[in-house]
Deep mutational scan, measured.
Amino acid sequence: EPLWIRPDAPSRCTWQLGRPASESPHHHTAPAKSPKILPDILKKIGDTPMVRINKIGKKFGLKCELLAKCEFFNAGGSVKDRISLRMIEDAERDGTLKPGDTIIEPTSGNTGIGLALAAAVRGYRCIIVMPEKMSSEKVDVLRALGAEIVRTPTNARFDSPESHVGVAWRLKNEIPNSHILDQYRNASNPLAHYDTTADEILQQCDGKLDMLVASVGTGGTITGIARKLKEKCPGCRIIGVDPEGSILAEPEELNQTEQTTYEVEGIGYDFIPTVLDRTVVDKWFKSNDEEAFTFARMLIAQEGLLCGGSAGSTVAVAVKAAQELQEGQRCVVILPDSVRNYMTKFLSDRWMLQKGFLKEEDLTEKKPWWWHLRVQELGLSAPLTVLPTITCGHTIEILREKGFDQAPVVDEAGVILGMVTLGNMLSSLLAGKVQPSDQVGKVIYKQFKQIRLTDTLGRLSHILEMDHFALVVHEQIQYHSTGKSSQRQMVFGVVTAIDLLNFVAAQERDQK
Rank of each mutant, 00 (worst) to 15 (best):
T395D: 08
T496H: 06
R509Q: 14
Y269R: 02
V472T: 12
E263M: 09
L248N: 02
F357T: 04
I444V: 14
M298Y: 10
A382E: 14
F295N: 10
W371H: 09
M419P: 14
F492K: 12
S348I: 05
V317C: 10
Q259I: 13
N288T: 03
F295M: 14
L453D: 03
Q323F: 15
F271Y: 06
A311W: 03
D455C: 14
E401I: 11
L358I: 01
K367A: 15
I451H: 08
G403D: 13
G414Y: 09
S338I: 04
N341P: 01
S313P: 10
N502H: 15
D411H: 08
V473H: 08
E263W: 08
L457D: 00
S246I: 00
A318W: 00
L430A: 13
E360M: 10
T391W: 03
T389S: 09
L325Y: 02
G418P: 02
A407G: 15
S287A: 13
V491E: 09
I238S: 02
T294P: 02
E265A: 00
G493M: 03
V504C: 09
L417P: 13
F357N: 03
C392H: 05
V472R: 06
S381N: 09
S481L: 11
W351P: 00
N255Y: 08
S437D: 01
I451A: 12
V409D: 01
V410G: 15
R488E: 12
Q476D: 10
E258T: 11
D282K: 14
H480W: 06
A301V: 14
N424Y: 08
F357M: 00
Q259L: 14
Y262V: 05
V319S: 08
L430Y: 13
V281T: 10
G356Q: 09
S481F: 15
K512W: 03
L417I: 12
D277V: 01
G493C: 14
V472I: 02
G393Y: 04
L471D: 02
M419K: 10
D499Q: 05
N288I: 15
S313V: 14
E365A: 11
P273I: 06
K433Q: 14
L358N: 10
D411V: 09
L305D: 00
S485T: 03
Q256W: 14
Y479C: 13
Q323Y: 11
I451K: 08
V434L: 13
L335A: 04
E303N: 07
L305F: 07
I498W: 08
G379K: 10
I390V: 10
Q439P: 10
L254T: 09
Q478N: 15
E401G: 14
M343V: 09
N341R: 02
A407P: 10
A301P: 03
A431Y: 08
Q507N: 15
S287T: 12
T421D: 06
P383Q: 08
S427G: 14
A322S: 08
G309R: 00
I477T: 12
E250D: 15
V415G: 15
Y269V: 01
Q447F: 09
I300R: 01
V317A: 03
T364A: 03
E253N: 14
F293S: 02
D270G: 04
A318I: 00
R297A: 01
E465K: 12
Q447G: 05
P436Q: 14
R488L: 12
S381W: 11
F293C: 02
A316P: 14
K355H: 14
E291G: 05
T421L: 13
F503V: 14
L276G: 02
A296G: 13
D467F: 15
P388W: 12
G483W: 13
L347N: 00
I477D: 08
N502P: 12
I272P: 05
R350E: 05
K359D: 03
H372E: 12
N288M: 06
S246F: 01
T294L: 03
A382Q: 14
E397P: 01
N255P: 08
C307K: 00
A470S: 14
T274Q: 04
H372I: 10
P408C: 06
L464K: 08
R330L: 02
A311T: 15
F293Y: 05
G423R: 10
L335F: 08
D438V: 15
H480I: 11
P436D: 11
H372C: 14
V332K: 00
L254S: 04
H468S: 14
S348R: 13
K367H: 02
L353T: 12
A249R: 04
G312V: 00
K367V: 13
V443E: 11
Y479N: 14
S428E: 12
L501C: 06
E324N: 12
L384Q: 08
H394P: 14
Q259F: 13
S486G: 12
D270K: 05
D499T: 05
D411A: 14
K442Q: 15
W351V: 00
L457V: 11
V434N: 09
R330Q: 12
L500T: 09
G308N: 02
L464C: 08
Q478A: 10
D282C: 13
W369Y: 03
A249I: 05
S246Y: 01
S485V: 05
Q489L: 15
H480Y: 12
E412W: 09
F295K: 10
L380F: 03
A407E: 11
Y269P: 03
G266S: 00
L501H: 05
Y262A: 02
G266Y: 00
H468I: 14
S461D: 04
E265K: 04
G240M: 00
L363M: 12
E324R: 03
R374T: 11
R488G: 15
P273R: 06
K283E: 14
R350Y: 11
A318S: 14
L306M: 12
Q256F: 11
F346H: 03
D510C: 14
C331S: 02
L347E: 00
S338F: 04
G240T: 02
V415A: 11
R374H: 13
G304I: 02
R488A: 13
L453G: 07
V319L: 14
P368M: 06
Y342V: 01
N255V: 04
A296M: 04
A296T: 11
V386E: 11
S287G: 15
A431W: 08
F271P: 00
D349N: 15
T344E: 07
K320I: 12
E291T: 09
L335P: 00
Q439V: 12
I334K: 05
N502R: 13
Q447C: 14
F503M: 13
Q439H: 14
F357R: 01
Q376N: 11
V315Q: 08
V473M: 15
T454W: 12
T496P: 07
L457N: 00
V440E: 03
E365H: 14
G266K: 02
E361M: 07
K512M: 11
I390S: 10
H394S: 07
K484C: 13
T344P: 03
T274D: 01
F404R: 02
F295I: 07
F346D: 05
R350H: 12
I390D: 09
R400D: 10
S437H: 09
V280F: 12
W284E: 00
Q259V: 11
V443C: 14
M490I: 13
E263Y: 15
I498A: 12
T279R: 15
S461H: 08
L422A: 11
F492Y: 15
M419Q: 11
E465F: 05
R374G: 12
W370G: 02
H474W: 04
S313D: 05
K359W: 09
T395L: 10
W284Y: 00
I239S: 04
E327P: 10
A311H: 05
I272T: 10
Q302K: 05
G423D: 04
I300L: 06
